[in-house]
């Protein structure tokens, strides 16, 4: 499903966090939301996955207004990878991943073998298969993060929302997670911290600061030293690495 965010304002208490943002994710593309801490990235994403309600503006899934679609139907199309919410209930990895099927099953419907196959595939993709019977409290932060990703994959979304999915992960899994998402071939919108990784994996980039989209475009168009200076207030050089063909950023010390 294509996502369109139109002129959205979000308040937290009396404070306006997101100011008139327009954004569009379509045609199986992977879009990144980049910006400093507190710029409103998470807040915007939360309104897309309906934990927060925008004060004004409209969010569309394809042509439908999101607020007119039942929660369960939305969950059949959108899955979310955010920070793992720890709790005191000790489910196993497999049980949690299987919960990704929740929106696709009716109240008493049993999980079919197809559902279990999706779970196994996702466990393999995220490198968790060996840990499937482990209880969640025994996993490291990075492993928990991969459990959340596996659950989001099992949900079979056509749009995936990710809020800093690669926090807590070492570089191997950061690359793997972004690679997995890219390979799913669905629409994805991710808030990311690492500009180089975003440039490497994403098709489109939105730079957000103080609740507004300041610049957007293809990675090579918008990741420039001028824009990075404006958004992050750091001096740097941006160049293309001749061996990997990736954008590389080198920062000056202050």
């Amino acid at each position: 499903m294509n996502l369109t965010v139109e002129n959205v304002d979000i308040f937290l208490g009396a404070k306006k966090i997101v100011k008139g943002i327009d954004l569009h994710v379509a045609n199986h593309s992977f879009a990144a939301l980049l910006g400093p801490n507190g710029s409103g990235k998470s807040t915007l994403l939360k309104s897309i996955y309906r934990v927060l309600e925008p004060r004004s503006g409209t969010i569309y899934l394809d042509d439908l207004k999101m607020k007119n679609i039942p929660v369960k139907e939305i969950a059949q199309h959108i899955s979310v990878v955010s920070q793992f919410q720890s709790n005191s209930f000790d489910f196993t990895v497999k049980e949690i991943v299987l919960m990704g099927r929740t929106p696709h099953l009716r109240a008493l419907e049993r999980e079919s073998s197809a559902d279990y196959q999706l779970v196994d595939e996702a466990l393999h993709k995220t490198g968790l298969y060996e840990l499937k019977d482990r209880s969640i409290s025994k996993l490291s932060g990075g492993e928990k993060q991969r459990v959340v990703l596996a659950r989001a994959i099992v949900q079979s979304p056509t749009l995936m929302i990710l809020d800093e999915p690669s926090n807590h992960l070492d570089i191997k899994y950061q690359l793997e997670i972004l690679h997995i998402i890219k390979k799913l071939g669905i629409n994805a919108l991710a808030a990311l911290h690492d500009i180089s990784l975003a440039a490497q994996f994403c098709d489109y980039i939105y730079f957000i600061k103080e609740g507004e989209i300041k610049h957007h475009g293809k990675p090579k168009e918008v990741i420039t030293k001028e824009i990075l200076k404006e958004i992050y207030e750091v001096e740097c050089e941006v160049y293309e690495d001749s061996r990997t063909n990736n954008i590389s950023i080198s920062y000056y010390s202050i």
Binding site: V71, K72, S79, Q85, N87, E95, A107
Partner: peptide, 23 residues
């Protein structure tokens, strides 16, 4: 007993429950 799936999703926290389609 018929509500086990909703109850399990609830235990995962508010945000997760909502994103799993639970009202």
């Amino acid at each position: 007993l018929t509500q086990y799936r909703t109850l399990n999703a609830m235990l995962q926290g508010e945000e997760t429950a909502i994103t799993l389609g639970v009202r």
